[in-house]
Nucleic acid binder design. Sequence first.
DNA 1: TGGGCGTAGATTGTATAAAGTTTCGCCTGT
DNA 2: ACAGGCGAAACTTTATACAATCTACGCCCA
Lengths: 235, 235
Amino acid sequence: MAARSRPKSDAPDVSDRVSRIREGVTAAILEHRLLPGIKLGEDEIGEIYGASRTLVRTALQQLAHEGIVNIEKNRGAFVARPTPADAREVFEARRLIEPTIVDHAVDAVSPAWIERLQQHLTEEREAELRGDARASVRLSGEFHRLVAEMSGHSIYLGFLKELIARSSLIILLYRRHDTPACGTDHHAEIVTAIRKRDREAARAQMLSHLNEIEAELFLKDPAADELRLADVLGA
Amino acid sequence: MAARSRPKSDAPDVSDRVSRIREGVTAAILEHRLLPGIKLGEDEIGEIYGASRTLVRTALQQLAHEGIVNIEKNRGAFVARPTPADAREVFEARRLIEPTIVDHAVDAVSPAWIERLQQHLTEEREAELRGDARASVRLSGEFHRLVAEMSGHSIYLGFLKELIARSSLIILLYRRHDTPACGTDHHAEIVTAIRKRDREAARAQMLSHLNEIEAELFLKDPAADELRLADVLGA
DNA sequence: TGGGCGTAGATTGTATAAAGTTTCGCCTGT
DNA sequence: ACAGGCGAAACTTTATACAATCTACGCCCA
């Protein structure tokens, strides 16, 4: 009902050509096919999607507002390169918001939602088993978005979408590879807590999940000039 | 330094013509000169600011992303009309985020910041004294933004900007006028707590301030069909 | 040989024109 | 008199053309 009278800009509207471009580029960034610093030329993208620069520009501006693309005046659009400081801010915000979101999710629990969550867990496990890293990283982010959708809180959902997208770039840039493969499946534990309507457990599981993700990051401060240079030079 | 290499899209860039339009329209909405539902024609705005529709369109799209403007396909842009449900979400989010923001603000306290806050309180009182309702409502929102800037947390700042803008529309639409004029100056108490570096007091003051604002609202649920109709019809 | 300057090419920023959709008024028919 | 439909006007959407800016390469000179 409200969807017709007020088509929120966030609505998919798959028929909308701008949205197709935006979602295509977003997926490419979230799946780590487009790496931070890469130039997103307007003509280039326009040719791929068969659209004029006008539409590409609109899509890129939206992505810039979501924080996964930087637009530099007279130079063009680039995939964002979050700094360690950005990373800390993003995860602090997630630690604040996501426990509240799962809290709401517990209120919204229903057989249909549990079904949907379980199905998602299956997809995640399948991607993991077949070693599909790209699908894996995408699904991992989508789990958090799914919980936010379940909460029914559209503002938190909007904020979280932004945070998840940025997190994907942060993990790509700063994840340490020397960490032990974590045996426990946090997402499954969160679903279990939601299903049991155990508010406190759900919040706690979510929080520790986020802490573990952040613990796997190596957020090197700009101590070494090497880093400073690489950062300033951009690409 | 980072400002040059990555000119965040949020940066004022007062020389930027799109920003001038965006800030002009934002100010008009926040000061309640443009009321919810009003049509924002591209030609109309373009003529006022001496800009082509291309630039106006960019500005309006940014405002749509901030949630204070709705863009309806093939119909144009309108000042947003938040529903009671939207209002509850906005204030819940503010109750979650703003106490954390003042917490950070306490960490950042310095003579310069205290000076700035005090000066703002003075401006607020002056506007109140001379009965300038428009300046009053604008400054009231800017106080919260100022605290968020003080916190140094750019993500929270971005989120809060959006929440404040929407709050302004919500207050305009749903404020009850039969409430007693609150004698206490909450903003001043918050500044005092920040100056004393009293974290807990600052959080508590901010929370009770938000609760009081929300308590002054009459968030009528769509019980009466009259309201439902008016909402669906839009303008 | 190394650095500075200038011009050519490419890319973005802005404006304008063409295309499509909605809205509103008017007219006709009942 | 009123409902329904046709048509023109206004507006948004999209594409394209033009202007401004930046980048890169090559040339010249010290």
